[in-house]
Amino acid sequence: MGEVTCELCPRGCVIPEGASGDCRIRVNLDGKLVATTYGRPSSIHIDPMEKKPLYHFHPTSPVFSVATAGCNLHCLNCQNWQLSQRGGEEMEHIFRLEPAALVALAQEKDCQSIAYTYSDPIVFYEYVYDTSALAHEAGMSNVFVTAGYINKEPLRKLCSVLDASNTDLKAFDDGFYRKINDATLQPVLDALVIQREEGVWLEVTNLVIPTLNDDLAMIRRMAKWIRDNLGEDTPLHFSRFTPMYRMRNLPPTPTPTLEMARNEALDAGLHYVYIGNVSGLDASNTYCPRDGTLLIRRTGFHVDENNLTPDGRCPVCRELVPGVWS
């Protein structure tokens, strides 16, 4: 009875009876911490894999995407704030979908992957874990789209049932995390390394916000850190910011800013650097890092052309392109 300490994420909330953690959905009921949105998603969609974004993981395949209310970050620019900045009791729509039913529904809709996304799936950890275990038994893949603000031990356990992750690295600056996301940088860096160590296919997204995290020197440091700690073949997505939620005072990211960021990352030695949320750029395509051959041409979330060999190699020089292609 009494207070409980949640050890899921670095916040370490100490929660009195009748209150929730900072995430709003882990509630202390009579001394028991309850995951109130377990089996109760509020958002369900079928998306292309490219929307996560994952460019090196089962291209073009549909992914059954779910989220519940709640989040352990409070980003001023959140694009899903109606979902993430609410508790389960505040949602207009709640579906009853226990893990087995979710897996069955995804299969019925011809999806071979399930994505835990939109809000941060860290906060509905137990639902993700149990569903992912069942999905694996059914021969399906699990995709985790996250900001990576989680403690090490829970993450390592979760990695055993995950196949791919797109993790936000919101800025290579602790001050940015504190001011904009109400979080800190180091746990996110740790989460990236752990996912790599545990063999989860990993892609990284950096949302470039004008004046806040578009400093090219910082972007270069971030790219070098990724190269040195995650590997030069780790795909990095620079994504365009659009004014949202409590950050409507800044303009959308200019395309040249994204292109300069991409050039910095390429110069730092990363092989696969993409620009997202902008259509019609060459930077949406995958090129062979060895000979420059166009491997995959994309428009938005659509793949127009895939020249990779069935075993994921450049058709010209036979360079192996890391990813999960089959």
Partner: peptide, 18 residues
């Protein structure tokens, strides 16, 4: 909502009694 089954009473992992 718990009584109505709209929310869950599933016990969370990763916590300790204080």
């Amino acid at each position: 909502l718990l009584d109505a089954g709209e929310l869950s009473t599933h016990e969370a992992d990763w916590y300790q009694h204080k």
